[in-house]
Design a protein around this nucleic acid. Structure first.
Length: 134
DNA sequence: GCCAACGTTGGC
DNA sequence: GCCAACGTTGGC
């Protein structure tokens, strides 16, 4: 199983809304690297849900419920979406500050490539954040 | 609101 | 194919 992290600005789409909806079509990705990551997601993979700009913290874990297919919001075959469903909310959010301060998370994409909105995590990174959030 | 990082576009 | 200009993201 692979592990991922996606970002969302809570103003646009928050974890709370995601939980209320029960599932989400992860649309709007317009970056090739992020797109490639979406395409690599497999059903059942776990995905950290990060609030960018406001909050700046990992708030919960989602699960891939449907693998990639063409983005229905745009007439351009280059872009794809996946379907995500809430899996588990973290007991306490893990802030960017915490992640930056953690020795074992220095190589995380979140820090190294700040602007990427969909990125892979190693199992160690995933487990570490999970632990920090429980 | 500013700015650094970085991706994309378009002229040559 | 290079690179300058420009736009966007996201932390601060």
């Amino acid at each position: 199983m692979n592990h991922w992290l996606v970002k969302s600005e809570p103003v646009k789409y928050s974890w709370e809304q995601f939980e209320k909806d029960g599932n989400a079509v992860w649309d709007g990705v317009r970056n090739y690297q992020a797109r490639n990551n979406l395409q690599a997601m497999k059903k059942g993979d776990l995905v950290m849900f990060y609030h960018s700009n406001e909050g700046m913290c990992v708030v919960g874990i989602a699960k891939v419920v449907k693998e990639f297919y063409p983005d229905p919001t745009i007439d351009d075959p280059r872009w794809v979406v996946v379907d995500l469903a809430p899996h588990k909310k973290l007991k306490k959010p893990v802030t960017l500050e915490t992640i930056k301060a953690d020795e074992t998370l220095q190589n995380i994409g979140l820090i190294r490539q700040g602007r990427l909105s969909v990125m892979p995590l190693t199992k160690d990174e995933f487990d570490r954040i999970l632990k920090l959030g429980s």
